[in-house]
Design a protein around this nucleic acid. Structure first.
Lengths: 186, 186
DNA sequence: TTTATCATGTAAATTGTTACATGATTTA
DNA sequence: TAAATCATGTAACAATTTACATGATAAA
């Protein structure tokens, strides 16, 4: 059950549900996303279970906020998750399933179109990650290896994101070439 | 809703629920997995919805089987899924979330252990993919570019699998080095 | 005769998505 | 004053996992 643990990780500093949603969208979206309609009930459940405590937020601006802080039990739960070792083999990648069955289109042109559209998504994603990295680098002279731990480990995930999206992009190009070659052969 | 479409893709030839489970485990597990307890009810629902038809299986061996065939409506549903373009940005990668929060262990040795365990998983996974490819290559002189479409497109997903798992493995090595270097600096 | 594999399901719980509902504050 | 953002939630549905339940056949 990762959502709970990710939220515990984000609650290193006190946050509202709305804050947590923003952190998902800004920092985690390459590998996890969550909707507000999942976050708010989960915060309530976690508080019931003693992993969090909450208080009415000191909000300078905007409507009243409920701000959550993780408890000692919450910190233990988080470290237990990390100490149990990596969770692997649970990924679901819908676009790969689609490529697997692309023969069902019975049309190489449509298959190429599909791969080009996928390539476009990957190119945009790569540009976003590169922009994030460039922004980080130019605003922090310690980037990447002298950052404090709380930023260094997140940077590792950005590093992999860049490699992986690049690998996807290169693969799309190979696929398009190979499908074209089949087409040429008839 | 990809499970339905993947099952439609697998039902290019008539299959039982048990057969479908084997195809998930053998060919799709790098990017999708499903349990029998999800497959059987889904087959029933899909038949109700007119995407499949079923009959008592001609089973030479073993207990009676129910064998499903996709209907014209099922084929349309599958091509519609493919024609709607790639589904991206839905992946959840739990081990990356764990790396993101690894600072919470407050212990570089434990972080290195985590990355080594992850590296081990990736090495095993890579070996499996390489074995699958080698097996395929040695049993089929047409591998990879002269295969019929129904095998060529699946081969594309194996190609990406190999690149991606290799990228993960290299990244694990980089991470371990970088954490060690931090440790050395104190 | 025991173990592995074949074969099909149900039940309960958890997790995740989409739609709906409300209202305050800030910026243009 | 209109639109964007801040802020919190509920309801209904869909998807997934884990546990339970059963029994036949094949291979060692």
């Amino acid at each position: 059950m990762s959502l709970k643990h990710i939220m515990l990780g984000l609650l290193r500093e006190p946050h509202s549900g709305y804050d947590i949603k923003k952190r998902f969208d800004q920092s985690l979206r390459s590998f996890w996303r969550a909707e507000l309609s999942q976050i708010y009930p989960m915060l309530q459940k976690m508080e019931q279970d003693g992993l969090l405590s909450s208080k009415e937020g000191e909000s300078d601006i905007g409507p009243p906020r409920r701000v959550y802080t993780r408890s000692a039990k919450g910190r233990e739960e988080l470290t237990a998750w990390l100490q149990n070792g990596p969770t692997v083999g649970t990924e679901k990648i819908a676009y790969l399933a689609q490529v697997f069955f692309l023969a069902n289109l019975n049309d190489h042109d449509k298959a190429i179109e599909f791969m080009q559209e996928l390539r476009q998504h990957m190119a945009e994603w790569l540009a976003q990650l590169q922009a994030a990295e460039e922004n980080w680098r130019s605003n922090n002279p310690l980037y990447p290896d002298e950052l404090p731990d709380a930023d260094f480990f997140p940077q590792l995930t950005l590093d992999l994101g860049l490699s992986k999206v690049q690998a996807n992009l290169d693969w799309c190009d190979r696929c398009i070439e190979r499908i074209r070659a089949r087409q040429a052969r008839g």
